[in-house]
Nucleic acid binder design. Structure first.
Lengths: 138, 138
DNA sequence: ATACAATCTGGAGTTAGCTCCAAGTCAAGA
DNA sequence: TCTTGACTTGGAGCTAACTCCAGATTGTAT
């Protein structure tokens, strides 16, 4: 598979894909005799994983660390397992932040939806006041 | 409340707080006669909201746009409402990416936990192969 | 064989979001 | 009053993650 095809498959630019390879977020990609990248199923698997984790906010160097360990062989399995667990905790924390923001957002939107009708914002005691997020109770 | 107190309350650096004010992520903060920032309850509410949304990945300029509209008064309520809805969609998408990554991650960790026992990675057909994320079925 | 598009490399440039710094001002304790 | 430490500003510097570019090479259609 050409770089262009992989790009459109995952919505990544060619430059980004080459960058990922250069910094070790994915291992070296298979090449044609002429030196053009020709992604195998396995290469694509790495790209898919990298794209998925990156879009969840996993930093480049963490992904690269995993690939480095992978290349060292089976002796690094426990280390990789630990790394994955840490990565999981990170993403879980990310999601929690999203949930917190969504809760705040939903409360705000509720008030705004009423305000769009009346022309004036009315914050009840539980939700906060003004356009800021302050809760009156604290 | 001094800038230091606000910082420790939200785990933000003073530089970041001043930066937020400068770029309009929060409105101008109340000052002492000497010119020192003295955060009111309302200022703190803005900081809280900004911190919450920022940590969920909301870009600076979107938050600043909201504050700009807020300062223009009640006539911008519908616009602000729309902006909030877009912001909500963004964060929802963020969370979806986290969920996708978590699913992939959990599958990987499962395989690795077995591997830590046996010393060898064994990927079953449903999960993918190697250390990449490729699913054998596609 | 030739044109033309796609890809290659190494390196420079860009963007967002802070983070640091110097030089000056303000405020509380001895 | 003096010292010490927190706070101020404007502006420069930094990091992560791309993104762009020039000039060379490869692959493909006529």
């Amino acid at each position: 598979m050409t770089i262009k095809e992989v790009c459109s498959k995952f919505g990544i630019s060619p430059d980004t894909l080459r960058y990922y390879e250069r910094v070790g977020v994915i291992p070296e990609v298979h090449r044609t005799p002429g030196g053009i990248r020709d992604y195998t199923e396995e290469d694509i698997g790495w790209v898919e994983t990298a794209a998925c984790f990156r879009s969840a906010g996993m930093p480049i160097d963490l992904l690269a660390a995993y690939v480095r360990l992978y290349k060292e062989g089976d002796s690094t399995i426990p280390e990789r397992c630990e790394l994955l667990r840490e990565a999981r905790a990170r993403i879980l924390a990310e999601r929690q932040k999203c949930d917190d923001a969504l809760a705040k957002m939903d409360a705000k939107i509720k008030v705004y939806e009423k305000a769009v009708q009346t022309g004036k914002l009315v914050w009840d005691d539980d939700q906060g006041c003004c356009s800021c997020g302050r809760t009156k109770k604290e």
